[in-house]
Amino acid sequence: MFAVVKIAGQQFRVQAGQSLYVPHLQGKTGDTVEFSDVLLTGSEGDLSSGAGVTAKVTAEIVSDLIKGDKVIAFKMKRRKGFRKKLGHRTQYTQIKIQSIA
């Protein structure tokens, strides 16, 4: 069985036992998180979507804070002496899907 879940504005296709990285969630390692915004569920060729979906996805937080790769935004205007270097590292949370009910 699989489900398409909306987590922090992004859609993820998940299955029970799957581990994935999602945008940073509040909580500590070992906490259980429940996602009720399920967009689609399917099992063995049977799909249900829209208002007919009443499933909930439960997951456990494996690692609460993981930083992604550094992204650098460099701005420059030629012949003007203007240079600006900005950068950031996106924060993620690693979760493991326990069940889809």
Rank of each mutant, 00 (worst) to 15 (best):
E60S: 13
T58R: 12
D31C: 11
G52K: 08
P23N: 15
I66Y: 00
Q91M: 13
G17I: 11
V14C: 14
A16T: 06
M1W: 12
A3W: 06
Y92W: 15
Q26A: 13
F12C: 07
E44M: 06
R13W: 07
K75V: 03
L25Q: 06
F12E: 09
P23L: 15
R79V: 06
G17F: 08
K67N: 06
K96F: 01
T41Y: 05
R83L: 10
S19N: 07
I97K: 01
F74L: 02
Q98F: 00
V33I: 15
K96R: 07
Q18G: 02
I61R: 10
T54H: 15
V57R: 00
I66A: 01
R89A: 11
V14Q: 12
D46R: 05
S43P: 00
K80E: 07
T54M: 07
L25D: 05
V57K: 00
Q18P: 03
V38L: 01
M1T: 15
S19H: 08
V22L: 09
V14N: 08
A3V: 12
G87N: 04
S36K: 04
L20P: 04
S19V: 12
A51C: 12
K85M: 14
K6C: 13
A101C: 05
A3R: 12
T29D: 11
L25T: 02
S48C: 02
T41W: 05
I66C: 01
K75S: 07
H88S: 12
I66Q: 05
Y92T: 03
S19Q: 10
L25Y: 03
Q15S: 15
G68V: 06
V57H: 00
I100S: 00
G42E: 10
A8F: 06
I100E: 00
E34C: 13
L25K: 06
Q26Y: 09
G81K: 02
R78L: 14
Y92V: 05
A73R: 15
V53D: 09
V33Y: 07
Q91V: 06
A59E: 06
F82E: 14
Q15A: 14
Q98K: 14
D64Q: 10
S63I: 12
S43L: 03
Q10R: 10
D37H: 09
F2P: 02
T41I: 15
T32F: 14
D37F: 05
V33C: 10
G17Q: 11
T32H: 10
A3P: 09
I66M: 05
R13T: 14
S43K: 02
I7P: 10
K6Q: 09
R89V: 09
E60L: 12
T32A: 12
G30V: 07
I66V: 08
D31I: 13
I7S: 11
A73Q: 15
V22K: 07
M76N: 13
G81H: 04
Y21A: 15
S48H: 03
